[in-house]
Nucleic acid binder design. Sequence first.
RNA 1: GUGAGCGUAGCUCAGCUGGUAGAGCAUCGGUCUGUGGCACCGAGGGUCGCGGGUUCAAUCCCCGUCGCUCACCCCA
Length: 437
Amino acid sequence: MTEKREFKAIKGTRDILPPDSALWNWFEQTARDVFETYGFRDIRTPVFEETELFARSIGVETDVVNKEMFTFSTGHDPDSTGESAPDRTYSLRPEATASVARAYIENEMQTLPGNAKLYYMGPMFRRERPQKGRYRQFYQIGAEVLGQSDAPAIDAEVLEMLVVFFKRVGLTRTTLYVNSIGCKDCRPQYVELLREKLREVKDQLGPDSQRRIETNPLRVLDSKLPQEQPIIAKLPRISDHLCAECREHFAKLNEELGLRGIVYEENWRLVRGLDYYTRTTFEVTAEGLGSQNAVCGGGRYDGLVELLGGPPTKGIGFAIGSDRAILSMQEGGKLPHLPGLAVFVAWMGQAAYPTAVNITRKLRTAGLAVELPAEEMKFKKSLGLADKLGASYALIIGEDEVASNTFTLKRLADSEQKKLSELELLEYLESERRGSR
RNA sequence: GUGAGCGUAGCUCAGCUGGUAGAGCAUCGGUCUGUGGCACCGAGGGUCGCGGGUUCAAUCCCCGUCGCUCACCCCA
């Protein structure tokens, strides 16, 4: 207890411990289950890539690339021989879409049949100041569809999958916002129009928004400042300035979403921070999160693969912030009941020990979570520990049981107990296990 | 990068107008060698984040520093 705490988790990182880790596993497993029913399959990419990959796909001017990446130099690459070897820098991934696009190109996935439907989950890294729901190492679950088609039905299916997932994990009280931010043809025109209008009202805006007029006018639209809201409400809306193709695409998407019964809100002020987004963009917000309330963001990125040197390819995807989603679930109350320790083996006396060891192994073979005390304990202590560990049952093995070749199984919730033969015990617990799932 | 708030036991927190520290919970042991949750008794655990200043004396006042939290920016 007098240890000096010499080491601690570095700023913005944290340990996810039991019992939370069980919730995390369940959350991620549910994503796998749902996504695979939609024909998605797992892709695992490295957690670091060449800095340039992120710079080019996310955009050099974005904050994510500009000031939030953990970047390190390769130093002396043991593989390179000459002094003229390029000194490359690597960065921990701030998101994974760029990596998936890179992998798509590198592995020539355009030659695979159908669209590439990929999902991933894992840690991402951004060097921001931590706050509620924001970490420097945070976790995302994402999915991407890459291929030749940009059919609105793909967008709708991706959104349907998202909604189904959130429902499955019990994350209610969420809102899905959908928008279209146009394509490389119509968006620049709108951005210029917006910039002009913003210049006219510049003196009514705060310093942040004034700066954004030149750097990124779209960002003014999602300003949180109350005094700017009336001004923003009068700004031109992108939905009125989409090109014919984008307008058609967005209309079809609305139709497709209706067909699937997906409840959403059109939000003309929803813009995304990453450069690669085109047309469809969306976001899901949840309750109980402080000011970082987006649990999922995504959209279409039709030019990205080509931008990275790949073949002309359409793409759409999203990323769920697991930290935030799970936080929201925990704040919201109803969490799943996850199975914990099934059986605590309360053995007493050295004569009972071999029996305890053997039955423990058999129960574990049957798939049950079993705790076997390594040292003999007082019987009361034993049951007390079983209780504290949250075991469903205590399996009592003492002189009596050994003598009669039976086991005493006690259900801790209601103190119900009975004597069983080994066969009866195994059958009973196995049926219990199946029933509890 | 900017701003605000907070740092006392493993956790949650008391600690008056300055006089060198307490509670609850948790942990461990006992009452209790075949029946847990309860109760009672006891134990361990603190350089009061760190450094400096003021003072006879600092957990308390002042300065600095580090850390945490929340918010801004931005984003999942």
